[in-house]
Amino acid sequence: MRRRCPTIAAVSKPRKRFRKLDGILLLDKPRGLSSNQALQRVRHLFEADKAGHTGSLDPLATGLLPVCFGEATKIAGGLLGARKAYDTVARLGIVTDTDDAEGQPLRERPVPALAIDDIDAALRKFVGRIRQRPPVYSALKRGGEPLYAKARRGETIEVEERSIDVHAFELQSAADLLDGGEPLLRLHVECGSGTYVRSLVRDLGEALGCGAHVAELRRLWVDPFREPKMWTIEALQELAGRGGQHALDACLLPIESGMVAWPEVVVAPAQAARLGRGQAVAQVQGPAGEVAILDHHGRALGLGQLDAGFSLRPKRMFSWACAGPETAAANG
């Protein structure tokens, strides 16, 4: 009788289990990854069931990318509009289709003889409330599709100017250029929401008469994280290898650290319970507008809208607020 060979069952890799995790990670995004690629790497490393980032960085860019886990994603929209700071290197004389070093050259022009005063005078034109045309290769959407997708298909795209705030646009060094080396300017930028540093550098190049593109870009800080302790992906992987999830969790900031831009109002336990059920409460003292809601322990419960008559309406409440004051205290 012929013996039948045993079949080897395919061994499937166990599916990764994600966990509920709340907090904010200040990630130092590496060059070469999109913001979403970096987000997914740290999400899988932390095994978090929900995560989002607060403002994209181009693949060429490095630096601060705040990552919100769990309930912290509910305040991510507020962080998107925060003031930001960058260091960038502008390469004069070459214009690219993406306005940075990853694009294809479109035009090359000689760089004129420039003095520091010439550069400073050009920089001053771009400080204050100005009009800016975003890059064609950007994540801005038209008809529900990012502009970069249309540009890659070769579509002709007209991008409208919009108003932005540039708080500082300063020369840090022109030594490369003035010493006869590469025509590079090292610049510092502080700006508001919606500003494209690539567009600033492109327009500066035109003001100097030679064109320019971004060769390097690093985000230094985002309000309210002015002196951030950033974590690289490599450092996080090393921590995970040594101490597991407990070591990783120690890298997270509490949700409250991202809420300092909102005026705070403190509510009593009974008011917290009503807000958690989606009901407005009366007689809450504070400034009219969007506010951060805290319980009497200082624990953030969510965001609300306070009107001039001191009526507080819930907008985005955290899960522990919806569970009631006893559960919120236990989570704290």
Rank of each mutant, 00 (worst) to 15 (best):
S56F: 12
A329E: 07
H246S: 11
H167C: 04
A235S: 13
D179E: 15
Q279S: 09
V159S: 07
A48H: 08
A292F: 11
W320V: 11
G32Q: 03
C251A: 13
S163I: 14
W221T: 14
S138V: 10
L64S: 04
T7N: 14
V291G: 05
E161L: 01
M230H: 04
T232W: 13
P269Y: 07
V166H: 08
K20T: 13
D49W: 07
P314E: 12
A121D: 08
K29R: 13
W320Y: 15
W231F: 12
V67E: 12
R219S: 06
A10Y: 10
T73W: 11
L306T: 10
A72R: 09
L147W: 05
L185A: 05
K125T: 11
V291T: 07
R131I: 07
A113Y: 03
I116H: 03
L64D: 09
M259Q: 00
I75P: 01
A288H: 11
A174Q: 13
S311R: 14
C191H: 11
L177M: 00
P263C: 02
L312W: 06
E182Y: 09
A113E: 15
L204G: 03
P59Y: 09
Q271S: 12
V265L: 10
H297C: 01
R107C: 02
N36A: 08
A101L: 11
L57V: 06
G211K: 10
F126W: 13
L147M: 01
R274A: 14
A250V: 00
N331M: 13
L123Y: 09
V266G: 07
R299C: 15
P14E: 15
E216T: 02
S311Q: 15
R15S: 05
Y196F: 05
L92R: 08
L177P: 03
P314I: 08
A121S: 13
R202K: 01
R277S: 02
T195Y: 10
L275M: 00
L123N: 08
R133A: 06
L312R: 11
A38Y: 07
A10S: 02
A51E: 13
L306K: 10
S319D: 14
V95F: 02
P287L: 07
G205I: 06
E238L: 14
L236C: 00
G194D: 09
G324T: 10
G128F: 03
L177V: 07
P30C: 15
L200R: 05
T98W: 12
V159H: 08
A38P: 00
P110V: 03
